[in-house]
């Protein structure tokens, strides 16, 4: 390709090849983008992931409910005094993922624990009111969480995630 006659006009000839190759490469790269982007959540899925409101009045002390937001189960626990005390008694520094109970609830709403009910190990759903710490127990690989949803034992690396939420009123929260 780049022999004999290319010696006559080396620059012009090479420039043409490089330019054509470069333009084709840009086109190929631009074509790949829609093919990749289409796998992201579509507009209806994104819209359906809008914030939701949850009424807390039906949840008695010591009970919890599971609601779904963005396809994820959210545990809302109405904790007893005992459960709150248990959570606050533990020295934070002794925890695998140090975080105080106060950091995990909203001020003035200590009795309400709102966590994403997905084990931080590999995504199974922990069972509430199970395990040695009266919190959550994941049946898949034995991770145990306390009454604040913090990891205490087992392979999970971090505490149960607290989703973005806020109190609209004393008895109503908005998740998302």
């Amino acid at each position: 390709m780049t022999t004999a006659s290319s010696a006559d006009h080396p620059t012009r000839r090479d420039f043409l090849y490089v330019a054509t190759g470069a333009v084709a490469a840009v086109g190929a790269a631009a074509t790949v983008w829609p093919l990749v982007s289409q796998m992201n959540p579509d507009a209806s899925t994104v819209a359906a992931g809008a914030p939701i409101e949850v009424d807390l009045t039906p949840i008695a002390e010591g009970q919890d409910i599971k609601v779904f937001w963005r396809g994820k189960p959210i545990y809302i626990s109405h904790r007893t005094k005992k459960q709150i005390e248990e959570a606050r008694k533990v020295p934070v520094s002794s925890l695998p993922d140090p975080q105080s109970d106060e950091q995990r609830v909203k001020p003035g709403h200590d009795q309400w624990l709102v966590v994403v009910g997905i084990c931080t190990h590999l995504g199974c759903i922990p069972i509430s009111h199970e395990g040695a710490y009266d919190g959550f127990f994941c049946p898949c690989h034995g991770s145990v969480y306390d009454t604040s949803g913090r990891i205490r034992q087992g392979p999970a690396p971090t505490n149960l995630v607290v989703p973005p939420y806020s109190f609209v009123s004393d008895t109503k929260i908005q998740i998302g």
Binding site: P34, L35, S37, Q38, N40, D42, A43, S44, T45
Partner: peptide, 13 residues
């Protein structure tokens, strides 16, 4: 219709 309306570049594909 959802492909065409909601999927990213769905109309194009």
């Amino acid at each position: 219709e959802l492909i065409v309306r909601d999927v990213n570049y769905g109309w194009l594909l």
